[in-house]
Design a protein around this nucleic acid. Structure first.
Lengths: 216, 216
DNA sequence: CCGGGAATGCAAAGAAGTTATCAATTGACC
DNA sequence: GGTCAATTGATAACTTCTTTGCATTCCCGG
């Protein structure tokens, strides 16, 4: 789980590297250790986050211990705008996946950012829009596609973010959580894809046979 | 299917009636007949919509004829901001459910609205945020809850929007589509809820035994 | 180099949902 | 009041996924 990706192919809206640097000049980044909670479900949403370094798993822990994953975010990704703008409490937990650095943008900071740069409002609308598009894709895929097909898509998305564009570093349990299926089903889907020659299985990694052509 | 609701309990962000009237003064509403498409998946998103009157079913038709419902919207609800702001094509189809009147807000109109009233940017952020919250709830519920439980929640949400707060007018097929299950499963879930005394079944309607206390 | 926790592979039983099919009921329309 | 399409209720066979359980493989750290 080293890389960031969302659970579908939708493109992301990221804060450009340049903007991130300017942001860092005005706001200090907070550091989070692996597994540390960045936000808890139910918290008041008095700030939203920009990932500077590392990765963040966003999802929802249920009271019975179950977990529903929504996305894994990486540098330049934003999250937490939902609660920030609607006033409803945090809808999801966010946990650092590996050491991470994030900037919290609260209301005073946002005001100063927006006065300096008009583009912020549109950037935020775009970010929320992308998150919604991804969510709709997940709903549609969950309802209509079998696990193996959803897994193939997930792996393609994850591989696109990997160093070599082909090798995904994740355990089967992690993949199962992301897909919302049991480890047994995930294992069966992997066996399926392997039999069809679409992937190669390893201990803690998977390699896809035909990575997507690198996009712009 | 006379009333509007979303597929979870999340509150809506609606354009207040006063704002709607001011809007109608500047922009004419378009009329749509029952079953008419308001937008098609894949269209360019050069405007977004405000529902003035009637109801709109938002979802996605698959090539194989399947349909995935996302929400049923009513007066004051907005949709289509996603494509409008992100530049990605329409993510969903929208179909008038009964005769409906909607206002299309394109870029020139939005500019004039925003110059007259600063609150629009925040209103839009709120609307998108609500839609995202609803979507996350759907993903979580789909993955973790059995059909009967999801049905109970859907009926509660629909009943809250009904005239008497208890009676939902919809066919079982429509409910099944909204829930993303087959009619057989929906029938079983209804039998279940009936046996537990939670609902009363009729031809084209359902009545829930204990409606939620009316909220503010 | 080796001990042990973590990760994987797999099988069996059962739960939940789907498709297909058909009969009975309802209500709208002539 | 009769006709007919739409809706509901139900059953059976089948598919998919889950839970449970256990054996095997991997690799990290002493």
């Amino acid at each position: 789980m080293q890389r960031s990706y969302q659970l579908t192919f939708a493109e992301r809206t990221r804060l450009p590297a340049l903007g991130r640097e300017r942001l860092l000049a005005t706001a200090p980044a907070r550091r989070f250790a692996d597994g540390q909670f960045v936000q808890h479900q139910g918290d008041p949403g008095d700030a939203f986050w920009v990932v500077v370094e590392g990765h963040v798993l966003v999802g929802r822990y249920a009271e019975d211990g179950g977990f529903t994953a929504f996305a894994v975010l990486g540098p330049g990704d934003m999250f937490g705008e939902l609660a920030f703008f609607t006033g409803i409490p945090r809808q999801a937990d966010a946990i650092a996946s590996g050491p991470a650095r994030l900037i919290a943008i609260d209301r005073p900071l946002l005001r100063s950012l927006m006065s300096a740069d008009i583009g912020w409002a549109e950037l935020l609308l775009r970010s929320l829009g992308r998150q919604l598009a991804v969510s709709l894709d997940i709903i549609d895929a969950d309802r209509r596609l079998p696990a193996a097909e959803r897994l193939a898509r997930l792996l393609a998305a994850m591989a696109a973010d990997a160093d070599d564009g082909r090798t995904v570093r994740a355990t089967q349990q992690q993949l199962a959580d992301l897909l919302g299926v049991s480890r047994v089903t995930l294992g069966a889907a992997l066996r399926d894809l392997t039999a069809r020659g679409q992937i190669e299985r390893g201990y803690g990694w998977l390699r896809i046979a035909t990575p997507l052509p690198p996009a712009g």
